[in-house]
Design a binder for these strands. Sequence first.
DNA 1: GCTAATGTAGACACGGAGGTCGACATTGAT
DNA 2: ATCAATGTCGACCTCCGTGTCTACATTAGC
Lengths: 141, 141
Amino acid sequence: MISSTAKYALRAIVYMAGQSDRYVNRSEISNATLVPHEYLLKVLNQLDAAELVESRPGPGGGYRLRRPADEITALEVVTAVDSIPRITECPLGLAEHEQLCPLHQLLDDAGKRVEEAFAEAKVSDLLSRKRSRTCEFPQKK
Amino acid sequence: MISSTAKYALRAIVYMAGQSDRYVNRSEISNATLVPHEYLLKVLNQLDAAELVESRPGPGGGYRLRRPADEITALEVVTAVDSIPRITECPLGLAEHEQLCPLHQLLDDAGKRVEEAFAEAKVSDLLSRKRSRTCEFPQKK
DNA sequence: GCTAATGTAGACACGGAGGTCGACATTGAT
DNA sequence: ATCAATGTCGACCTCCGTGTCTACATTAGC
């Protein structure tokens, strides 16, 4: 449905959201979310470019959200790393088409529904209440 | 949203649906849908395994639908070649979880909505009324 | 039965997403 | 000013979905 990069981004963002305002370093995020440490860098870079997180180098540095968790939608996180394919015009460029062919309409509708699902969820909605048994952050073995 | 293989399958099925009961050979389907001729074979094999089409070799042979177009849903076509990822249980296998973590619930919800979109559409709904300007079958140049 | 049209099958090639590695740059604490 | 913790960047590797190639099997028509 979405790329694993997008899932990584969501896990990382949700983890940071659970750590209030402190800067969290990459190793800690990687340990908690099991996103590969080096790959996490690329994900965080994209989240930074999308202005969802900010970073600070040096001891005590790391990453944190730029905005409160209830003001960030899951859709923003997903689109920061992974464009959801929407079909707004005829893929053949036939300008005369007022509307898409039924098949293209269906494909676009599927994309639209996914977009809606992610747009309706705020990051704060994704925080697990009972932390002890959360499964969104897999355990390292 | 779905793989290009799934889009190929939909285009091929919709094309066959527009040819009533006659057997359509692979070259004709490939020309009409611009699905690469050799790759189309693999797609058709999967559609055959899913019992959506039947084939006949020899001169005058080819492929055709096994059931009427209004009794096949787009979801059947898509799932014949491409599983839509649903999350029915905790990915960590924590049996104690009565319900999924919020994040996994969201991901599953996205998959569910896509499934619904495709389940609601029959192949017959995807046939273009005005054939002259259809864009679902790209023109070879 | 022969031939041509067609489908069948498996091995191989390509490209992009996912993932790793090593050298470098920046900052906080002392 | 120095050092260590941390982030930054670019090159590389790997795997799998996509797509191609070549040889083989089956059948309609004569």
